[in-house]
Lab assay of single mutants.
Amino acid sequence: DKPVLAIQVLGTVKWFNVRNGYGFINRNDTKEDVFVHQTAIKRNNPRKFLRSVGDGETVEFDVVEGEKGAEATNVTGPGGVPVKGSRYAPNR
């Protein structure tokens, strides 16, 4: 398990590439950019086929120490709701 650095952090999605399945979230508290992989998205938009977060979307997440620095995990919308997802992700 990766060491946990912070829990229930709010941030804004800087960018997310649906095809490659990753992007970055900017933390509201430290203004640090945190890597996010599609496997870290815990509550996906049920209408979306692929797990994703949308550019500019506000999300809540935990921060863990990854191999290359801070990574987001347990990604949801604020308060644990499903994320909205990327407009580029296909609908079901």
Rank of each mutant, 00 (worst) to 15 (best):
residue 80 G to N: 08
residue 76 T to I: 01
residue 18 V to D: 13
residue 81 V to I: 14
residue 10 L to F: 05
residue 66 G to K: 03
residue 80 G to F: 02
residue 70 A to L: 15
residue 60 E to W: 07
residue 61 F to Y: 03
residue 1 D to Y: 12
residue 90 P to T: 10
residue 31 K to R: 10
residue 84 K to H: 11
residue 21 G to V: 09
residue 87 R to W: 09
residue 79 G to K: 11
residue 12 T to I: 07
residue 25 I to N: 09
residue 89 A to I: 08
residue 59 V to R: 00
residue 7 I to S: 15
residue 90 P to G: 11
residue 85 G to T: 02
residue 18 V to I: 10
residue 11 G to C: 12
residue 84 K to M: 12
residue 22 Y to C: 15
residue 68 K to V: 07
residue 83 V to E: 03
residue 83 V to G: 03
residue 81 V to D: 10
residue 60 E to D: 01
residue 72 A to W: 00
residue 5 L to S: 11
residue 55 D to L: 10
residue 75 V to Q: 00
residue 80 G to Q: 06
residue 74 N to D: 05
residue 1 D to N: 15
residue 35 F to I: 11
residue 65 E to L: 15
residue 48 K to F: 03
residue 53 V to K: 02
residue 92 R to L: 11
residue 85 G to V: 02
residue 92 R to H: 12
residue 82 P to A: 12
residue 72 A to P: 01
residue 20 N to T: 11
residue 59 V to T: 01
residue 64 V to N: 02
residue 79 G to T: 06
residue 79 G to N: 14
residue 53 V to F: 05
residue 77 G to N: 02
residue 72 A to Y: 01
residue 33 D to V: 10
residue 58 T to E: 11
residue 55 D to Q: 15
residue 85 G to I: 02
residue 51 R to P: 12
residue 81 V to H: 11
residue 60 E to Q: 15
residue 56 G to V: 00
residue 50 L to W: 13
residue 75 V to W: 00
residue 72 A to F: 01
residue 56 G to K: 07
residue 75 V to C: 02
residue 39 T to N: 09
residue 82 P to D: 08
residue 77 G to Q: 04
residue 81 V to R: 15
residue 76 T to N: 03
residue 77 G to R: 05
residue 79 G to C: 11
residue 55 D to H: 11
residue 90 P to E: 08
residue 46 P to A: 07
residue 7 I to N: 10
residue 65 E to S: 14
residue 51 R to Y: 08
residue 72 A to N: 03
residue 81 V to Q: 14
residue 54 G to R: 12
residue 85 G to Y: 01
residue 51 R to D: 05
residue 30 T to A: 10
residue 34 V to G: 03
residue 81 V to L: 13
residue 54 G to Q: 11
residue 46 P to R: 09
residue 77 G to P: 02
residue 78 P to Y: 04
residue 59 V to G: 01
residue 55 D to R: 14
residue 86 S to E: 04
residue 90 P to I: 09
residue 84 K to W: 06
residue 22 Y to F: 09
residue 51 R to L: 05
residue 22 Y to S: 11
residue 59 V to I: 04
residue 56 G to C: 06
residue 79 G to H: 10
residue 64 V to A: 05
residue 55 D to T: 14
residue 88 Y to S: 06
residue 4 V to A: 12
residue 72 A to Q: 02
residue 55 D to I: 12
residue 59 V to D: 02
residue 88 Y to G: 06
residue 57 E to V: 01
residue 58 T to R: 10
residue 50 L to G: 12
residue 91 N to F: 14
residue 77 G to E: 04
residue 89 A to N: 06
residue 53 V to M: 07
residue 10 L to S: 11
residue 87 R to A: 12
residue 75 V to D: 00
residue 56 G to P: 02
residue 91 N to V: 12
residue 20 N to I: 10
residue 84 K to C: 10
residue 37 H to R: 09
residue 44 N to S: 09
residue 68 K to H: 12
residue 92 R to N: 13
residue 71 E to W: 07
residue 65 E to A: 15
residue 52 S to I: 02
residue 51 R to G: 04
